Amino acid sequence: MFTLRAAVMWTVNDFPAYAMVSRWSTKGYMACPVCKEDVTSGWHVGKVCYLGHQRWLPWDHEWREKDKEFDGNTERRLKPREWSGDEILEQLNRLDFAPFGKTKNVFDTLVGTILDIEGKTKDMIKARLDLERMGIRRGLWMNRDSDKARRDLAFFSLKPNDKKEFLKFVSSVKFPDGYASNIARCVNVDGGKFTGLKSHDCHVFMQRLLPVGIRHLLPEDVVKPIMLLSRFFSQ
């Protein structure tokens, strides 16, 4: 007879499960487990949104001054302080497990917005109306030249001809065996969308294809942050 002891060394959870294992709510105005009480949030487009992301940038970063491109405010704050393990244990009485992000969710949102895919894009009428209410990004407000308001194509979305060029480029790419599935089969050029992409395919797409495919089709101030995001997924 002997006494058997077991210990949990780590877990991998999605963001909703994070709330259960850490006892920190992942819903509402203070859902960020990193910023905690120092989060910047507000009610926009019918849901809670989290703003003030420029505060994470270096102090002299050019995007801190671009108030019109973000929420209308010049960001002068430093990033939220990092909590020590002892502080987290004292506050939550639990270990601080890191959430597991999903590349596919980022892919669906980003590519859906770039291609202006209905049901996927985040550039919705509610978002446009919210920009008007906040008094920022006038170029993205609803067009009311006629009797009915309409949502014009945004500068960060591809025009129809550019969309076809982008999709044809993706359908022409071939990868070595085992690197990724046949992504060309998932391209619907006429329909202007992708179908059947697996999580790994989305990861490869974000890393390799997206920054190359859009660099000559979208404005530089749109391409640059997307390339930085792709670099993040390559790390």
Rank of each mutant, 00 (worst) to 15 (best):
D177N: 01
P33W: 10
L131Q: 08
R151G: 08
F175Y: 14
K104L: 04
A17I: 02
G46M: 06
S41R: 06
E82L: 12
F166D: 02
K198W: 06
W59S: 11
V34K: 09
M206R: 01
T26N: 10
R137C: 10
N13I: 11
M142K: 03
W56Q: 02
A17Y: 07
S172W: 08
D147K: 07
G139P: 01
T113Q: 04
M1L: 10
D201T: 03
G52Q: 04
S230P: 10
L51Q: 07
R133V: 05
L92F: 14
G46E: 08
I183K: 00
N13L: 13
V187H: 01
A180H: 02
M1I: 05
L95E: 13
H61I: 05
I117S: 04
A31Q: 09
E90V: 00
F15T: 03
M142F: 02
D221C: 05
E62L: 05
R81V: 01
G42P: 01
F166N: 01
V12A: 12
K174G: 00
K168W: 01
R133F: 10
A19H: 06
R23D: 15
V170L: 05
W56F: 15
T11I: 15
L89I: 01
K126A: 15
R5V: 12
R76Y: 14
I183C: 02
P176K: 05
N105R: 11
F107E: 04
T121R: 13
Y29M: 14
G135S: 08
R55Q: 10
P99I: 02
E75S: 06
G135L: 08
D116H: 11
